[in-house]
């Protein structure tokens, strides 16, 4: 594949053309934060964002997703993908999307996710800014982002655009692209390493060391009890996580009371009822009743349980959980480094 260059002054025209070809989901400002949203105009685009509140997985795995609709005893599948462009996804978030792609395809393919994913062209972006809690430089270093169709990197005069798939190449038809010079490529690669070095937090051990030590810490009650003392079981750390994909399934009737929908909604293993089953008159059995158990389960999932399936940890170091946690106890760097030193 060849490398392209887009002048800063041509960015808006490029994005405008993309918007006219398909819905474009891209980072925009919301108060003092950023979110991915359907772009109405290129003026809203904020490629200088540091982090978004929710990760871009919502573009194919929305917080509430209808799986099927029903009318009396007849069910209709709700899989109806829309062709769309997910624009400006930071490279650590691409890694997370790669993980979800694998997890939703593995064992039993879930087309409710996969169809939306397949209909999405992803333009990745080398971060231009780093959030206050990011540690993506030091986590899962051997795993590289893979599922994007193109990668854009901001350099002084504009953007180096590296298509990785035919869809990615096709996007260059929508803008005034030139061939990137070797000087521009060098500058892009320098930008990539410079921004990575700016991650304010850092894991100090290898994936393997962390996985082994974390797993071995399971019965260290003191660690998990102390770490979760201020936990609200609010599930924020799960909900904002780009690699979390747990969900609940519920049914709801429409106003006519005969038709309705079965839908899934993001669930959070930190919340009290996540592993609870009803025993009827005998009450209930909660397989993770204590908040320390739930707190530990999330960390195990991030640092060790899924590693063999994913080839690395189920964490990309975005720092959303650390930032979103009101009592500030969810930071994987602090938790892991604490376990490693124990």
């Amino acid at each position: 594949m060849s490398y392209f260059f887009l002048k800063e002054s041509d960015l808006k025209d490029f994005v405008r053309k993309l918007i006219s070809s398909a819905p474009v989901i891209a980072p925009v400002a919301r108060k003092n934060k950023f979110v991915f949203a359907d772009l109405e105009s290129p003026d809203e685009l904020r490629l200088d964002y540091d982090i978004t509140i929710l990760p871009p997985k919502k573009a194919f795995f929305p917080p509430n997703q209808t799986l099927l609709s029903f009318k009396e005893n007849k069910a209709t599948s709700a899989i109806r993908p829309r062709e769309q462009i997910l624009f400006g996804v930071h490279t650590y978030d691409v890694k997370a999307i790669d993980m979800l792609d694998l997890l939703f395809a593995e064992n039993n393919a879930d087309n409710n996710y996969l169809a939306n994913r397949k209909a999405t062209t992803i333009v990745a972006m080398t971060p231009q800014a780093v959030s206050g809690r990011a540690f993506w430089e030091s986590v899962g270093k051997t795993v590289q982002p893979n599922g994007h169709d193109a990668l854009m990197t901001k350099i002084r005069e504009g953007y180096v655009f590296e298509p990785r798939t035919p869809q990615g190449t096709r996007l260059t038809k929508s803008g005034i692209f030139s061939q990137a010079s070797s000087g521009q490529l060098d500058e892009a690669s320098k930008c990539q390493s410079e921004i990575a070095a700016k991650c304010p937090e850092k894991l100090s051990h290898s994936t393997r060391e962390i996985s082994d030590k974390m797993r071995a810490s399971f019965n260290n009650e003191k660690i998990w009890h102390t770490a979760s003392l201020d936990c609200f079981s609010c599930g924020t750390c799960n909900i904002v996580c780009p690699t979390c994909y747990c969900f609940d399934v519920q049914d709801q009737w429409n106003l006519d009371q005969v038709s309705g929908a079965r839908y899934r909604t993001w669930d959070a293993c930190l919340t009290e009822d996540f592993a609870k089953i009803s025993l009827g008159p005998a009450g209930a059995e909660n397989f993770r009743e204590e908040r320390a158990e739930r707190f530990r389960h999330r960390m195990m999932r991030k640092a060790t349980y899924l590693n063999s399936r994913l080839g690395g940890p189920a964490c990309v170091g975005c720092g959303r959980c650390s930032e979103g946690c009101v009592p500030d106890i969810a930071d994987p760097v602090k938790i892991i480094n604490n376990v490693m030193e124990s």
Binding site: F247, R264, I277, L306
Partner: peptide, 18 residues
């Protein structure tokens, strides 16, 4: 027995460790 919600290894509710 656990809380098997999706039955296809996705939803996460029935996990016992990994």
């Amino acid at each position: 027995e656990r809380r098997m919600k999706c039955g296809i290894g996705k939803c996460g509710h029935c996990q016992i460790n990994d």
